[in-house]
Write a protein that binds this DNA or RNA. Structure first.
Lengths: 131, 131
DNA sequence: CATCTGTTATACTATAAATATAACAAGCAT
DNA sequence: ATGCTTGTTATATTTATAGTATAACAGATG
């Protein structure tokens, strides 16, 4: 799987890595049970430090995306990702609010906003299994 | 206008303040031409440092939300907020992508996601002018 | 036994966030 | 003219996070 990082971006590297892996799972380029590179080889591949990779992995583990076996390595959660619960949905809404407030101020209509959301959903539903 | 800050939140204070003001504008509790408290009185009101308020104001100015006159003080942009342009829309889509990828993984449907967006839009359209 | 795994520990640098003072310059009211 | 308020600028300090650099440990596996 191809990992794209933007070192100039203000977003921390380990967050970007986290998001790239989540996108990979969403697009089904990464499937349940599949292995991820070890912290060391992933770090070497993308040219960052081992600890930065580990930080991303620990967060993904915390969120139920992956399992980490002490010696076997890292695998995408075979049981799939935990489904969105109430707390998750509340946090999601809280996260979306600033973007929507901003859009309202800038006269970007609800229709257009939702059109963008739909187009992003389509990205994930259509690119299933592609490289 | 009531400003609500959560000092425990990881979100920087100046960002929270910025968002609160933007929400105020979206809800039309704050209208074009209206004055905002000086950096000093705002800082005293909400119990933070003058520079933290100034940082929020500078960002709002940069984004076209407010005008700052050297001695007259701070006012909501009388001409209204600049409308969303192409660059803004691209950035918005890039910002939404991680949330949507996450939702897809967690089996949260496009319909439900959009329902949340609509409910937030409704918050702003319905509470116009309320305290 | 050597090698690979995640893990832990320590140290260092760089940056951002927030605060604390202090001072400056321009307008305005009395 | 004298204060007062305005945003602005400058300096300094503290705290926390991000990222890197090494090193070592513990448990499997070949």
């Amino acid at each position: 799987m191809l990992i794209q990082l933007d070192l100039e971006n203000a977003e921390p590297i380990y967050i970007q890595l986290q998001q790239q892996i989540i996108e990979g799972i969403a697009k089904k380029q990464l499937n349940p049970g599949e292995s991820l590179p070890s912290v060391r080889s992933m770090a070497a591949d993308i040219g960052i430090n081992l600890h930065t990779v580990n930080k991303a992995y620990q967060h993904l583990k915390q969120d139920g995306y992956i399992l980490i076996h002490r010696q076997k390595g890292v695998v995408i959660n075979p049981d799939g990702v935990p489904k969105a619960d109430g707390a998750y949905k509340e946090k999601l809404k809280a996260n979306l609010r600033p973007f929507i407030a901003d859009s309202v101020c800038r006269d970007l209509s609800e229709e257009e906003f939702i059109k963008y959301c739909s187009s992003i959903f389509a990205e994930f539903y259509n690119e299933e299994g592609d490289s």
